[in-house]
Nucleic acid binder design. Structure first.
Lengths: 123, 123
DNA sequence: TTAGCTGCAAAGAGTTTGCTGGGAG
DNA sequence: CTCCCAGCAAACTCTTTGCAGCTAA
């Protein structure tokens, strides 16, 4: 089943990937159509096996839905995304829940800036 | 100039608005084209008068670029966005800067869940 | 056989762009 | 007279959908 190929690519990637990146990657091994990739991806997201995140560039990024909560530092120059696990937002979530009654189920956090590499090159 | 109408709508809105909402709003007073709205919006963003945020629904939301840093609680049922100012992320930013050298210039944070209203109705 | 996968092409949504005419200074 | 602004239609990108054929249990 082609789903396995797609899931494998996601599983083996340290970063979140776009549908196109996944498509390119899977295409190296088998014939596949972009629609199939999207359809499968939505399927995996529905089953909570994969998480989809829409970034400021309006593109969907997919990553393994493990419980390790990650966020990304995105360089506005080279567009590389560096994962970080420094996320104390659970605290903020609890506070919001307590003070507003809003029942939070998820959050997305995205940092933008310039990575060390790029700021070095700029000099 | 039509730019003023658009800027006024944004200025007078407590929430962030989509291009379409702005278009509808401005249309009540003058004739205007959607492209003009988009063009003007991009213009205002370039001049740092307006901030553009892409949410998980892949739609761009525009708001006044004041320094009051706001984030939104977005209800997955009614899709209403409630602003919150409980954002201690500056702390996290400093920590990241210190530990990784990544020079953060901005961030976006989006909470998803069910608002009190909707959880009440669900019962 | 039945149900679920696929490919292909077309549609869709939000946004941008090229070209042109029009208005302000 | 210039130049920027605005309207219109077409283009663009990413993603979804309808349909038909295929595959596997």
């Amino acid at each position: 089943m082609k789903k396995d190929y797609i899931f494998d690519v996601i599983k083996n990637s340290p970063n979140s990937l776009t549908a196109e990146e996944i498509y390119n990657n899977v295409s190296q091994n088998i014939n596949i159509n972009l629609s199939t990739v999207y359809r499968t991806l939505n399927n995996l997201v529905d089953k909570d096996l994969v998480t989809k995140i829409v970034r400021q560039d309006k593109i969907s990024y997919y990553e393994l839905a493990d419980n390790e909560h990650k966020h990304y530092l995105i360089c506005d120059k080279c567009n590389q995304a560096y994962p970080t696990d420094m996320c104390d937002i659970e605290k903020i979530e609890r506070k919001i829940k307590r003070e507003t009654g809003f029942n939070i189920t998820s959050h997305t956090l995205e940092f933008h800036g310039i990575c060390p590499e790029c700021s070095k090159n700029a000099k």
